[in-house]
Nucleic acid binder design. Structure first.
Lengths: 232, 232
DNA sequence: GTCTATATCCGGATAGAC
DNA sequence: GTCTATCCGGATATAGAC
C-alpha cells in the first residue's frame, strides 16, 4: 500500500473541474449565440482545450445540452421540495420555478425540448435516455397532487396531463418577448386558476369513470399510463 | 413579336418536370432511409442531377420537406371536402383520412417528428414557415364544426384544440406497429366518441364563459385564437 | 488516464465558371 | 440551369506527450 489508491482523489477532482468548465463555457456560448451557431471548436477553444479533448468529455454537442437539462432538473427538484401551501400554490411554485430556471437559457431551450420527445427510439414512443428525467418531472407534479385528495387511480393521468401542459408552457415561454416573460407567467396562473378548481370533479364517480375510459383508450393505443411515481 | 414570348410553354414544363422528379426521388429516399440519413448528394444523384442543380431547385433539404407538407395537405382537403354526415362522422372522416394520407410516409415522418415540439425548427408544425399549411388544416376542422350548432365564438378555440389532438394522434400513428395501424385508428374513434358528445356543453352559458376565459388567457399570453378560417 | 495535435470523413450549403 | 470546386462544421481516428 505504497502509492496505489490514495492519490485517486486529486485527479478525479480535476476531471470534474475540466468537465464542469467545458459545460460552463458551452452554456455561455449557447446562450450568447444559440446552440446551432456554436461550434464544438468554439467550445473547446473557450475552455482552453483541443477539439479532441472536448469530445473526450462530451461525445457530441447534444450531450452538452443534455447535461444541462439534467442539472436543471436537479436544481428544480431542490426548489420544488421546499414548496408548501395549497395544491394550487405548490403547483404554481413548481411551474413558475421551472420557467425561471430556464430563463437564462431560453435560447437553447428548443434543442432541449426536442430531445424530450424522441419517438424514433426503438423502445417506445418516448426515448429511453430521457425517460429518467421525464419521469422525474412527472413524478414531481404527481407528488404535489397527492395532497389534493384525488383518488390515487386518477393521479398518474392528471400528472401526465399537467406535464404536457407544462411542456406547452415552455413552448410559449421561449417565444415570449414580453418584459420579464410576464405573459407566460400570467398564463401559468390563469391556467392553474382554471384547472385546479376542476380537479375535484375528477374525484366524483362520473369523473373517475371518464378517467378510466381515457386510460383504457390510451392503453389500447399502446400508451401505458403507469402509476409510476417511482421517483424520489 | 417574332420569338420572344411564345416559346415559354416548353421550358416551363421541363422546369416543373425536373422539380417534380427531384421531389419524387427525395420522398422515396426519405421514406426508405429517413430524412436525416438521406443526403442531398443522394437525392441529386437519384434524380440524375448534380448537387448544385438540386440546390438550384430546392434551396435546402427542408424545402423538400415543406413541399411534401403542401402536397399532402392539398390532397387531404380534396378528400375532406367531399365528407358528409353528422359532425361526428365528418370529423372521423377527416381524422382517419389524415392518417391514411401519411401512411405511406410514416418512416419519413417519424424521422422528423422529433422536431415537432421545437418552435424554432422551421420544419416543425409551430413555425412561421409552416403557418399556411397549419391554418389550412385548422380551417378544415373548423369548417366541419360549423355544422355542430356551436356558437361561432367558441369555434376557433375548439378547432385549434382538435388540431392539437390530431397532432398527438399523428405522433402515436407513426409509432404504431399494429397491423393496419388499427390501434391508432381505434384511438381516433375512442377520442371522438368521448369528445364530440361533450361539445354541446360548450354551447351552454357556463361553457361559453369558460371558452372566453381561455381565449382571453391565451390572448394575454400572446397566442391569438383568431376566428381565422380565412381559408378555402 | 488525460490531453494535444492533426488528419480525415462526411454532408449541408454556396460561388463561380460554363 | 447546370456543373465542379470549395467552404464549413460535426464527428471520428490516431499518434503521441505527460
Amino acid at each position: 500500500m505504497s502509492s496505489r489508491k490514495p492519490p485517486s482523489a486529486d485527479p478525479e477532482r480535476k476531471r470534474d473541474a475540466t468537465r464542469g468548465k467545458l459545460l460552463d463555457r458551452a452554456l455561455k456560448l449557447f446562450q450568447k449565440r444559440g446552440v446551432e451557431a456554436t461550434t464544438m471548436r468554439d467550445i473547446a477553444k473557450a475552455a482552453g482545450l483541443s477539439l479532441g479533448a472536448a469530445y473526450y468529455y462530451f461525445p457530441s454537442k447534444e450531450a452538452l445540452v443534455f447535461a444541462y437539462y439534467e442539472a436543471n432538473q436537479a436544481e428544480l427538484e431542490e426548489v420544488a421540495r421546499r414548496a408548501s401551501g395549497t395544491v394550487r400554490e405548490r403547483l404554481g411554485i413548481v411551474f413558475h420555478a421551472k420557467l425561471e430556471s430556464i430563463r437564462p437559457h431560453r435560447k437553447m431551450l428548443s434543442s432541449i425540448i426536442q430531445r424530450l420527445v424522441d419517438p424514433s427510439d426503438p423502445v417506445g414512443p418516448f426515448s429511453t435516455q430521457t425517460r429518467a428525467v421525464r419521469e422525474h418531472a412527472i413524478g414531481l407534479i404527481e407528488q404535489v397532487l397527492h395532497a389534493s385528495g384525488l383518488p390515487v387511480a386518477v393521479l398518474p393521468l392528471v400528472a401526465r396531463a399537467l406535464w404536457l401542459a407544462q411542456l406547452a408552457l415552455l413552448l410559449v415561454f421561449v417565444n415570449d418577448d414580453s418584459p420579464g416573460e410576464q405573459r407566460t407567467h400570467g398564463l401559468v396562473d390563469d391556467l392553474l386558476d382554471m384547472l385546479v378548481p376542476m380537479l375535484p370533479l375528477l374525484g366524483t364517480p362520473p369523473g373517475q369513470a371518464l378517467c378510466i375510459k381515457i386510460v383504457d383508450a390510451l392503453g389500447r393505443a399502446g400508451i401505458p399510463v403507469t402509476p409510476a411515481s417511482l421517483v424520489e
